[in-house]
Amino acid sequence: MSKYDRIFDSKQTTEEFLSPEEGVAAIAVISAIADSSIEEVDAEALATVLWDFEVFDEYSEEEITEIVYRLIDIAQADGLGALFNTASAALNDEVVLDAYAAGAIVLLDEDLTIASDKEPFLQHLQKALDIEDEEAQEIVQEIIAAIEEAENGNFGDDDVEIILVQDYGDTVYRSPLANFSVPIPVSAEEGGRIQTQEGVVGFTDDIGSLVRIDYYPIPPEHEEEIDSLGLEEYLQSILVDRYVPQAIFAHVPNAEVRYGEYLENTLNGAYYVLVDMPQGSTISKQEYNGNAKRLDAYRGLLTFINTDFLYIVSNQRSFFNGDKPGTVEQEAEMLKNKILDFVKSIQFS
Rank of each mutant, 00 (worst) to 15 (best):
L229I: 09
F309T: 00
K324G: 05
S175H: 05
I162A: 02
D206T: 03
Q279D: 03
V49R: 02
I283P: 14
A45T: 00
K324E: 08
G153K: 03
Y168I: 07
T307W: 12
Y271D: 13
S116V: 02
E132V: 14
D296Q: 13
A128C: 15
A145V: 03
N337G: 08
L302K: 08
P20E: 00
A47S: 11
A178M: 15
Y100V: 14
L340T: 05
V186G: 07
A101H: 04
D308Y: 14
E189W: 02
Q286F: 02
G326Y: 12
D214Y: 04
I238A: 00
I64N: 06
R258Y: 12
F320H: 01
I139A: 07
R193Q: 11
F342W: 01
L50G: 01
F320E: 04
D130Y: 07
D5R: 11
V211W: 06
E40I: 12
V273R: 01
T204Y: 00
L231Y: 09
Q279C: 08
Y4S: 05
T266I: 00
P183Q: 10
D78T: 07
P278D: 11
A47E: 09
I67W: 09
E256N: 10
D9K: 04
V186M: 04
I238V: 01
F53V: 09
Y311V: 07
D157F: 03
A104S: 10
A45S: 04
G290I: 01
I339F: 02
V211C: 09
P219A: 00
D9M: 03
Y262S: 03
T307Q: 13
S31A: 03
Y215N: 09
F155E: 04
L18M: 11
R174T: 15
V328C: 00
R6M: 11
L112Y: 13
V68E: 05
L107I: 07
V95W: 08
A82W: 11
